[in-house]
């Protein structure tokens, strides 16, 4: 299983699409590693500076419909090679969400009010998230405040994360 958790990058916008996560011109790369310097290169978000804000981050918290648009699995891969294995959002686009679990990564959905609270309490401070995968819990901490939230994963999604992805699971079963 991949390691989950670490410093959090807050992206305060809905509908961040996969072209923003990794532009199409890099889809000609065959190696995942080549995607690394281009993550979030075209993100349209006021005040966001990719080189400054992405440094040492291992988790993303964002709003609604993250990963909409193209089916490119290069989006989760670009996150993966940057050490980001978990994205927390109010909801995800279907293909992106499936791609995350298919790669053994975590796409965690929390209610809108919880996401609001996360942005309110932690959004502007240096924050770390710890992931308790067995008990489906996230603990956010910025040194001043610590908050723990439960989340729900379907048994299938959990199985994929444990199996390391869908290829492993399907190959053993079908």
């Amino acid at each position: 299983m991949k390691p989950f958790g670490g410093n959090v990058l807050f992206l305060d916008r809905s509908d961040i699409n996969t072209d923003e996560i990794i532009p199409a011109k890099y889809l000609t790369e065959i190696s995942k590693e080549a995607l690394k310097p281009h993550l979030l290169e075209d993100l349209k978000l006021e005040g966001f500076e990719v080189s400054r804000d992405l440094k040492d981050k291992s988790a993303i918290v964002t709003r609604k419909n993250f990963g909409c648009g193209s089916s490119r699995e290069h989006a989760p891969w670009a996150l993966e090679v940057n050490g980001i294995h978990i994205v927390v959002a109010e909801n995800f686009a279907r293909i992106f969400r499936q791609n995350m679990f298919n790669c053994g990564m975590l796409a965690v959905e929390l209610p809108g009010e919880t996401i609001d609270e996360l942005f309110r309490i932690f959004g502007t401070s240096e924050t770390v998230v710890e992931v308790d995968f067995e008990n489906d819990r996230l603990t956010f901490s910025n040194g001043k405040t610590t908050k723990t939230y439960s989340y729900q994963l379907s048994p299938f999604d959990k199985t994929l994360v444990k199996a390391g992805g869908w290829v492993e699971y399907a190959d053993a079963k079908y």
Binding site: S71, R72, E73, P76, I95, Q98, N99, N102, C103, F156, G165, W166, V167, A170, D171, Y174
Partner: peptide, 18 residues
């Protein structure tokens, strides 16, 4: 339905998708 590369890979190999 559009899918990612992993679903596609399993589709190619096994002819199934979840």
């Amino acid at each position: 339905a559009g899918v990612g590369t992993t679903d596609l890979e399993v589709g190619i190999l096994k002819g199934v998708c979840a």
